[in-house]
């Protein structure tokens, strides 16, 4: 099995779905226009458009932010895309019945240089946890997962922030950043100082990390979008790990779950509180 067979299966399935009217459109990846580009997302609306759908190692973008489209929509979903869609359903952003998840077994995507993307090299997910269809692929050689967690220090954070130019691409690429007006764009109150200095970058990145707490699906869209090469994901990743350990929650795995930060329990521990971590 390979990308080619998966691509053929995908095109056949989508052609059938569009022909039968099971869905009004399919969000998938189109052919890339240049070898350095990623595959651009497209919406196939007619049966013949299904032939334009591509599946290869450069299907990098997360497609979940392109939802919702008018009518029932099928979405070509890598495991991370599927988790994002599930979390959007959990957060009541899209109704379950409006979307058909076509889960693509995925061994990880690559960058323009052919090397695995950083997020993909750290990802062990090979199949969408929730899907309506599965386009299977025997992924035999399970890669050793890389641990790029690194140390957590003020120096590292400042070095990363130095590279940031506050273009907010990471926010735009993120499936979870669907606020109508981002706090960083607000004028009253104005959280972001006008100077693109450390204070502004810290406010943005920590604020965004808080908003993504328990919602990040580790798709790496933020760092793939970053032209400046900022490791924007490491702080959110640390939070995601903490939430999994402390509250046993991973975003986008369970379609019946309630969002972790919108829940609470008398049994929660006072982690990091004054006077210790004891339970009240």
């Amino acid at each position: 099995m390979s990308f080619e067979t998966q691509q053929k299966e995908l095109r056949d399935l989508c052609a059938a779905l569009l022909r039968d009217g099971a869905v009004e459109s399919v969000i998938g990846f189109g052919e890339r226009s240049d070898s350095c580009c990623v595959c651009p997302p497209i919406a196939a609306k007619r049966e013949k458009d299904a032939g334009k759908l591509a599946w290869n190692s450069r299907c990098v973008p997360n497609l979940a932010p392109y939802l919702p489209l008018r009518g029932k929509t099928a979405i070509v979903a890598k495991p991370c895309d599927a988790r994002a869609v599930v979390n959007l359903i959990v957060e009541r952003q899209i109704p379950r019945e409006s979307v058909r998840i076509i889960g693509m077994d995925c061994a990880g995507m690559t960058g323009a240089d052919g090397n695995p993307l950083r997020a993909c090299a750290e990802c062990g997910e090979r199949r969408a946890p929730v899907a309506d269809d599965i386009i299977a692929n025997e992924i035999s050689s399970r890669r050793e997962l890389e641990d790029t967690r690194g140390e957590y220090s003020a120096k590292r954070f400042k070095d990363e922030m130095k590279k940031c130019i506050l273009c907010f691409s990471c926010r735009q690429a993120c499936y979870g950043c669907y606020c109508q007006t981002c706090f960083a764009d607000r004028v009253l109150p104005n959280w972001q100082p006008a100077e693109p200095g450390f204070g502004a970058k810290m406010t943005y990145h920590l604020g965004r990390a808080m908003h993504l707490a328990g919602r990040c699906v580790e798709c790496g869209a933020c760092e793939n979008a970053c032209a400046s090469g900022v490791d924007v994901r490491y702080i959110i990743r640390g939070v995601t790990e903490f939430i999994e350990k402390e509250y046993g929650f991973r975003a986008g795995i369970d379609i019946e779950a309630s969002p972790v930060m919108q829940s609470c329990s008398m049994d929660d521990r006072n982690v990091g509180f004054w006077g210790g971590d004891e339970r009240e």
Partner: peptide, 26 residues
């Protein structure tokens, strides 16, 4: 109790970003 989760996460986040943990208390 909603705040408790939020603060636990925030404290962790500040720790990850290298902020001295003793600057923020709940």
């Amino acid at each position: 109790m909603y705040a408790r989760r939020r603060f636990a996460v925030l404290k962790k986040l500040l720790e990850i970003s290298g902020m001295e943990p003793d600057r923020v208390h709940f």
